[in-house]
């Protein structure tokens, strides 16, 4: 697959709860698969901030010969702060990067488990799974509070079986996504299920444990500090099993999606 590095135009910015969705226009038709990401140079007119930032692709569409890419993010540092506030940016985007989710076609039930900003890869995946229409597509989406249920309004139109929860009970059920997951998996035939999850590492670890308990395969979409996104700098690594030993795997190239059984938790 060709990797493009292209100038973009920041055409819109909307708030979604405490997060933002920006739309970037590229004068080229490019397709993405659910689970892939982009590497964004926030403003090509300056060296500070310097490095690119990796973002999951929330949604995209084509119009004429252009691609409109929606990026959902929350402000976590200087880069995202600029992206949330400033106009007249000249962003450059390197796309598409990383491996797609490996959707198992022989399943009839798909469950996506998201925590906070970990929701981002599941708009495209949810849309794709509903389009394939093999059966039920469930989303369990949790956050600390309702202000961190990013993109919830947009997700509502996809036709997913939605389960919402918050730590403080400010929206949806009070509790954790893993409690809902455990309950749902306990109620159905699990050999027809494939699970996907994205969110904080502690949550992903617990999701893996629950999936393991019910013998359900789960793919995890990971985020790490990234440098080049092209496999050279070896900054974005995660520990994976390697026969009787372990090794570091590059999230940008070998990931960002891993089977939960591959990972080593610390």
């Amino acid at each position: 697959m060709t990797i493009h590095n292209l100038p973009t135009q920041l055409v819109s910015r909307i708030k979604t709860r405490e997060g933002f969705i920006i739309t970037l226009k590229i004068d080229k038709k490019i397709d993405f698969f659910p689970g892939q990401f982009l590497h964004l140079r926030i403003d090509s007119q300056r060296y500070d901030p310097l490095l690119r930032r990796p973002f999951s692709i929330w949604n995209y569409s084509h119009k004429n010969s252009s691609t409109y890419i929606d990026v959902l993010f929350k402000v976590v540092g200087r880069g995202t702060d600029i992206l949330a506030k400033e106009d007249n940016l000249k962003p450059f985007v390197m796309i598409p990067l990383g491996n797609k989710f490996n959707i198992l076609n022989d399943r009839s039930n798909y469950i996506m488990v998201a925590g906070g900003a970990g929701i981002v890869p599941f708009y495209l995946l949810g849309r794709e799974l509903v389009k394939m229409h093999k059966g039920k597509v469930t989303l369990i989406f949790g956050a600390r509070n309702s202000s961190q249920l990013y993109g919830l309004e947009q997700l509502s139109s996809l036709g997913l079986d939605m389960h919402i929860c918050t730590d403080d009970g400010s929206e949806g059920k009070k509790g954790l996504v893993t409690e809902i997951l455990d309950e749902l998996l306990g109620k159905q035939k699990t050999d027809s299920i494939q699970a996907f999850s994205c969110g904080p590492m502690v949550m992903l670890k617990r999701v893996s444990e629950v999936c393991n308990k019910w013998n359900v395969g789960c793919q995890l979409s990971l985020e790490t500090h990234m440098g080049c996104a092209l496999g050279a700098c070896r900054a974005c690594i995660v520990k994976v099993k390697n026969k009787d030993d372990w090794k570091y795997s590059r999230v940008c190239c070998e990931g960002p999606n891993y089977n939960s059984s591959e990972l080593i938790w610390e």
Binding site: N5, L230, G231, A232, C253
Partner: peptide
């Protein structure tokens, strides 16, 4: 250390 991986694709 700043080049390698799949840079030859770009």
């Amino acid at each position: 250390g700043t080049f390698g991986g799949i840079y030859d694709k770009v």
